[in-house]
Each structure stands twice: as C-alpha cells, then as structure tokens.
Amino acid sequence: MSSIDKLKEAWQSQSCGSLELDLGRMLSEIEFQRKKSLYSDLFVIFTLTCAALFFAVIATQDILVAWPWYIATVSVLFVVVIMSRRLLATQASRGRDASLVQHLDEAVAEAHAEIRRQLGVFWWYILPLALACMVPTFLMYITDPLRGGLMVLIGFELFFATTFLFVYLMIRFVGCRDREAYLKKLLEMRKRIEENDEL
C-alpha cells in the first residue's frame, strides 16, 4: 500500500454523528440579517424623502428668495430614486452548486460589480447630496446677502465640502480596500487555474 493510499484510508476512517443544529435559530438569523439590511435602506430613503419635502416647503414659502432650495429638493430626490431602484433590483444569486471554476468566475464578476458600485457612490450619492447642501447655501447668500456675512458662507461651504469629502474618502479607501484585496485573491486563483499552474 502506497503512502497516499494510507492517507486515503486514514481520511476515510473519519466519521461523525448527526449535527446538533438549531434550525429555527439559524433561520431567524438569516431573516434578521435580511430585515436589518432592508429596514436600514428604507430608513435612509424615508429620511431623505422627508428632507426633500422639507426643502420643497421652504422653497415654496418664499419662492422669490428661497427658490435655490428647489435645487436641494431635486438633488435629494435624485438620490432617493437611485436608492429605491437599487433596493427594488433583484440581485442575481450566485450559482452555489455550480462547478468550482464557474463559481469562481461568478464570484469575480460579483466582486467587480461591488467595487464599481462602491466607486459610483461619489456620482450617485455623495455629489448630489453635497450639491443639495452647498448650492442653495451659496445661492441664498447671493439672493439675500443680509442673512450672513461672507465668512459665515465660506464656513458653511467648507464644513459641507469637508464632511462629504471625508465620507467619500472613507468609502473609497476603507470600504473598497477589503473588496479590492478579496478581488485580487480571486483573480490570482483564476489566473493560476488558467495557466494550469495551481490545479
């Protein structure tokens, strides 16, 4: 008997009893995770919708002076629409029982898509929300300079710009870092299979 056959024999000698599985608890965990994600998205959509309505009301009250708030309304509604579309879009599930190579390809495609979504955050979410805050503030100052001095305006604009830039950089460099490392790992695996090196 060769040494690999001995290893095979030892490997196959392993056995175990039935699994003590709390199925109810596991299913409630799956349901909890799904609901948590859904409700957090719904909460953000609801909050942004309220903010858009609030801006619209402000703009309507004194349309000649407060019209820039319509820009904020449109920008925030844009984000609401994008978020709602993302929420409604059914995500294609990965073939869990596909072959290993096929599954790896799907995982690579999924990781690419996730990174693209993450990078698109700036255009689809951060920029519209930054415009919703910064443009009306600036236009309100132009329309009615008595509301505050130039320094106050610059202060507000700098505050908004810094906040949104910080959020963007966090998403870009902290959020994407893990995903990029994961994608790199998958791509390396795929490349080795292609080159018939690893397998």
Partner: peptide
Amino acid sequence: NTALVWKRKEKRRVRGEEAIAIPELISD
C-alpha cells in the same frame, strides 16, 4: 465553492454564534 470564495469576517456573528456546534470527527 463556499470555502473557496469565503471571506474571513473581521467581526464574527454574534446572534447566530451558538446556533451550530461543530461536532468532532472520530475514527470508528
């Protein structure tokens, strides 16, 4: 497939942590 593309979690699950206990493999 799961093991191959599995991502180590920074923070492990808390709620479902005790839902499954891994049994030991034995040689009969």
